[in-house]
Lab assay of single mutants.
Amino acid sequence: MEQATVKWFNAEKGFGFIERENGDDVFVHFSAIQGDGFKSLDEGQAVTFDVEEGQRGPQAANVQKA
Score class of each variant (00 low, 15 high):
A11Q: 11
E53L: 14
A60Y: 01
F17C: 08
A61H: 09
F30L: 04
L41G: 03
Q64L: 10
F49I: 05
E53C: 14
K65L: 13
G16D: 02
G44Q: 04
G16L: 04
G44T: 03
K7D: 00
T5A: 07
D42G: 10
V6T: 04
N62Y: 07
F9C: 05
Q59A: 07
A61T: 12
F49G: 01
E52H: 11
G54E: 04
Q3S: 12
D50Y: 15
E2M: 13
V63S: 02
A46S: 12
T48D: 05
E43Q: 15
G44C: 09
D50I: 15
W8H: 01
K13E: 03
N10M: 05
F27I: 02
Q45T: 09
R20L: 08
V28K: 02
Q55D: 11
V51M: 11
D25E: 10
G57E: 03
G57K: 04
G16R: 01
R20A: 04
K65I: 13
G57V: 04
F9R: 00
D24I: 12
L41S: 02
N62E: 03
G54M: 07
A32L: 01
G44S: 05
Q3L: 14
W8D: 01
N10Q: 05
D24V: 13
G37S: 07
Q3G: 08
I33A: 02
H29F: 09
V28W: 05
D24K: 14
V6Y: 01
P58H: 07
A46N: 09
M1V: 11
R20K: 08
E52F: 13
H29W: 07
G23S: 07
R56K: 12
I18C: 05
P58K: 10
Q55W: 14
F15A: 02
V26F: 05
V51H: 05
F49C: 06
K39G: 05
F38P: 10
M1S: 14
R20V: 09
D36A: 12
E12W: 13
D36T: 13
V51Y: 09
I18P: 02
R56P: 07
K7I: 05
M1A: 13
F38I: 08
A32D: 06
T5G: 03
Q34V: 14
D36S: 13
F9Q: 00
A4N: 04
K65S: 09
T48E: 07
G16H: 02
E2I: 14
G35I: 09
N62K: 08
R56H: 12
R20T: 08
G23Q: 09
G23M: 09
G54I: 03
G14H: 03
V63H: 03
G57Q: 04
R56T: 07
Q64E: 09
F49Y: 08
F30S: 04
E52K: 10
A60I: 01
D42L: 14
Q59P: 04
I33Y: 03
H29Y: 06
S31K: 07
E52A: 10
Q34P: 05
V47F: 03
N62R: 10
K39T: 06
W8A: 01
A46V: 14
A46D: 08
G37K: 06
P58Q: 09
E53Y: 15
E53Q: 14
G54D: 05
V26W: 04
Q34T: 10
A66T: 12
N10P: 01
K13S: 07
K7P: 00
S40N: 07
F30M: 06
F17V: 07
V6I: 09
A46W: 15
E52L: 12
G14P: 00
E21V: 12
G35Q: 09
Q45G: 07
